[in-house]
Computed example of a mutant assay.
Amino acid sequence: MKQQVLVLYLATSALDSQVVGWANYDGTGRTSPTTGDGDVPPYESGVHALRDGWRLFQASQLIPPYPGQEYDTSFMKHEFFFEKLES
């Protein structure tokens, strides 16, 4: 079995919210390079990825902003990791 990994950054912590960023890693060797790029996200939401057979295996911890830092720029906090296993 070989693993494909899909990282989706969503607009909110809800799995059905809009994808705002993504990364795709293909461990099967079928694509080169192993990461995808483009202007259009591979899915509209995390739920759409689930419906296409991706398995959710990690979601980022929800951490509230510290008082006074609500509008600071930082990492994308609504990160979800998915995988597909291929023969």
Rank of each mutant, 00 (worst) to 15 (best):
Y71L: 06
L62D: 15
E70D: 03
G36D: 14
L85Y: 13
G53C: 08
V19Q: 07
T35V: 08
F82S: 09
V7F: 03
Q3S: 10
G38P: 11
M76G: 13
G29W: 05
A23E: 09
A11N: 10
Y25L: 14
F82Q: 04
Y43S: 01
Q58I: 06
G27S: 14
E44K: 12
S17K: 05
V40K: 06
T34W: 07
K84V: 05
E79L: 15
P33R: 04
S60P: 03
E70P: 01
L15Y: 05
R51T: 08
F81R: 13
R30V: 15
S13C: 08
P67W: 01
T12Y: 02
L50W: 02
I63Q: 09
Q4W: 03
V40G: 09
G38N: 06
L6G: 01
R55K: 07
D39Q: 15
Q69I: 09
G46Q: 00
Y66W: 14
W22F: 09
K84M: 08
R55C: 08
G27F: 05
A14T: 13
W54P: 00
D52P: 01
F57G: 03
G46K: 00
K2W: 04
P65H: 03
S32K: 14
R51L: 07
T73S: 02
Y66T: 12
L50Y: 00
A59Q: 06
T73K: 10
Q4A: 01
P67T: 02
S17C: 10
F57C: 07
S60W: 08
G21T: 11
G46P: 01
D39N: 13
A49V: 00
Q18G: 14
I63D: 03
V20P: 14
D39K: 12
P42F: 05
K2T: 13
A59S: 05
E83P: 11
